[in-house]
Amino acid sequence: MIHKEYKTELTGVRYLSAATYEASFTRPKNFSFLPGQRIRFSAKTIQRDYTIVSGPQDDRITLCIHHIKDGKFSGIFASTTPGTQFMFTGPHGYFRYFPSDDQAVFIATGTGIAPFVSFVHDHVRGFILLHGITGPSEQYYKEQLISAASLYIPCFSSRLPDRQNTSAGFHGRVTRYLEKNLPSGKYHFYLCGSAGMIADSLPIIDERFPESKVFIESYA
């Protein structure tokens, strides 16, 4: 299948933390997508995918991007003036939410939270969410997620300075939470973000929650 190319315009950028920003774009008229899907930008020989954060009905497309120091592409929108036009293809990917009687558990690291925010825009509720981040400043879309989730657990991987240590959340990686805290049961797991987190979570899921289903989107 050849994906259609769309023209869009950057409308604004806002930083969500020191290294992560949200970029907003106009939504091309005939562009539609399903929550969890992504779009692809090209520059010379490189292509980069970014998962859509906004909902399928919104008139803007928003992306949540971790600006990697020395990265070839991830800083591009942050250093461009609003009004600049970009081309993208899409929608790409099959990472979708499937309603089920089994409890949904969303597991994200960093900007891997993006598809889950889009699910929430699409009225998905009652899920358990584990968000792997270094500290409280990276709890992107916290309010929205708290109000939609049945359980929202930020998992802080860094040792926090004492003044932040009181933050509500789990002090340890998401994999540790899976291993020690999530009650055994049959779940629908949705994993999104770093390949390391995904590779480390799967053996735990296979062992502790063998009847569960697993859906994966790797940012590797």
């Binding site: 390949a195 995904i198 590779a199 799967l202 296979d206 063998p210 697993v214 994966i216 790797s218």
Partner: peptide, 17 residues
């Protein structure tokens, strides 16, 4: 390489391991 299949299992498109 994602290392997700190193232990001989894979995920079907419908989620089963």
């Amino acid at each position: 390489y994602t290392k997700t299949g190193d232990r001989g299992k894979t995920s079907l498109f419908s989620g089963e391991r």
